[in-house]
Design a protein around this nucleic acid. Structure first.
Length: 338
DNA sequence: AGCACA
C-alpha cells in the first residue's frame, strides 16, 4: 500500500479559499442560476475588464450509488494527482459528486481517469464524469456551497498531490476502455492505465510546502508587579519570562504586533530577557498595555513583565545618536551624529 | 529583578 503518501497534509486550501465565492454549483446540464441582467452564461469565456472568469478545475461525477458516502468518494479521489477536495450533493434524485483539483489539466486527467469506472459491481454503478460548471468552493478546509444551505452536508477533505513526480500506487483499477457517455465532450481517449505508474499528467511546478509557523497568542494573563518603569520609548524590555522560555514563541507573539521592528533576546545566568523595538513610542505603548502579564506556553505559569527599556534601540547612553541612511552607492551606511 | 545592541 501507499505508506508515505497516505496522509494528506491539507495544504492547498488557501488558494481555493482565496477565490471569490461562486454561486451554488450546478450540474453541467442544469439551467443557469438566476440570470444577473444580460451577463448570462456565455459559451465562450468573455473577457470582462472587471472580473476574469475563474478557470474550472472541478469535475462533476454522476453514476454514484444512492448510498454513496462522502468518505467513499474521498477515499477514491485522494489518490488522484492534484486532488484537493470533494463533496457529494444528495439534493437531487441521484447523488452528485464534485471534486476539486489543483489545476484544470489535473481535473481533466482525473475526469478521464474516472470516466466509466465501475464504482460498485453489485449495484451496477458506473461513473460518469464531466467538467463542472463552477468550482467547488472550499473555505478553510471545509467544503461549502456558496449557496450556503444545510451545513450538515459539508465535509472535510484534502489531498496532498503537490508533487507531480509522485505516483500513487492506486488501490483501484479503472477499466481499460472508458465508457463514453451520451454527452458531447470528446477528449482524446486516455492512454491505457497502469496501476503501477499512474496516468500521465502535465507537470506542474512544485509548490513549496511551507509549514505555517505557530502564531502564539497569550494563553492567559497574570498580574505582574511593574513598579519602577522607565520613561516611554520605542523599545520594550521584557522580563519575568520563566526558566525555559522559547525564543520562537516569543518572536511569534511579538513579531505580529503592530509596529514591530526587531527583537533581541538576552540569555543570562538565571533570567532570559528580551528587547523589542517598535516603529514608535505609540506602538510600544500599545503592546506595553495589551501584553502586560501575558503567559505563553513556554513561559510556564508566569506572566511576562513589560517595561520600557532603559536604553532604547538607536539611542546610546553616551548621547551619540546613530541612524541608518542609504549611502552614495545605495547600500545602507551607518551614520553617527554627536 | 534580570537592560544589549548601535
Amino acid at each position: 500500500m501507499a505508506g508515505a503518501g497516505m496522509h494528506p497534509y491539507h495544504q492547498q486550501w488557501a488558494a481555493a479559499a482565496a477565490a471569490p465565492p461562486p454561486p451554488a454549483m450546478q450540474p453541467p446540464g442544469a439551467p443557469p442560476a438566476p440570470p444577473p441582467a444580460a451577463a448570462a452564461v456565455h459559451p465562450v469565456p468573455h473577457h470582462s475588464p472587471i472580473l476574469a472568469p475563474e478557470e474550472v478545475r472541478t469535475i462533476f461525477i454522476t453514476g454514484l450509488p444512492d448510498d454513496v458516502k462522502e468518505r467513499e468518494l474521498q477515499n477514491m479521489l485522494r489518490w488522484l494527482p492534484g486532488y484537493e477536495a470533494s463533496q457529494v450533493n444528495y439534493k437531487g434524485e441521484k447523488p452528485m459528486g464534485f471534486a476539486l483539483f489543483s489545476s484544470p489539466p489535473l481535473a481533466i486527467a482525473a475526469k478521464d481517469n474516472l470516466q466509466g469506472l465501475v464504482f460498485d459491481v453489485d449495484m451496477n454503478s458506473v461513473l460518469h464524469t464531466e467538467m463542472a460548471k463552477k468550482n467547488l468552493f472550499v473555505k478553510r478546509g471545509i467544503v461549502v456551497e456558496s449557496g450556503g444551505y444545510d451545513q450538515s452536508k459539508r465535509m472535510r477533505t484534502g489531498g496532498d498531490y503537490t508533487h507531480p513526480a509522485y505516483v500513487s500506487p492506486s488501490p483501484f483499477h479503472p477499466p481499460p476502455a472508458p465508457v463514453w457517455g451520451p454527452h458531447g465532450y470528446m477528449a482524446p481517449p486516455p492512454p491505457p492505465y497502469d496501476p503501477y505508474t499512474g496516468y500521465p499528467v502535465a507537470p506542474v511546478p512544485p509548490v513549496p510546502m511551507v509549514a505555517p509557523p505557530p502564531v502564539p497568542t497569550p494563553s492567559s494573563y497574570l498580574p505582574v508587579q511593574n513598579i519602577k518603569d522607565n520613561p516611554p520609548c520605542n523599545t520594550l524590555f521584557i522580563g519575568n519570562l520563566g526558566e525555559n522560555i522559547n525564543e520562537d514563541e516569543l518572536r511569534g507573539l511579538f513579531s505580529v504586533q503592530l509596529g514591530f521592528k526587531q527583537m533581541k533576546v538576552l540569555r543570562q545566568e538565571r533570567h532570559t530577557v528580551c528587547f523589542i523595538e517598535f516603529e514608535d513610542v505609540n506602538a510600544a505603548t500599545n503592546v506595553h498595555h495589551t501584553l502586560q502579564g501575558a503567559v505563553i506556553p513556554s513561559s510556564g505559569s508566569v506572566g511576562m513583565r513589560i517595561q520600557y527599556s532603559k536604553n532604547p534601540f538607536g539611542k546610546r547612553k553616551d548621547g551619540i545618536y546613530s541612524a541608518v541612511a542609504p549611502g552614495a552607492n545605495g547600500n545602507p551606511t551607518t551614520m553617527t551624529f554627536q
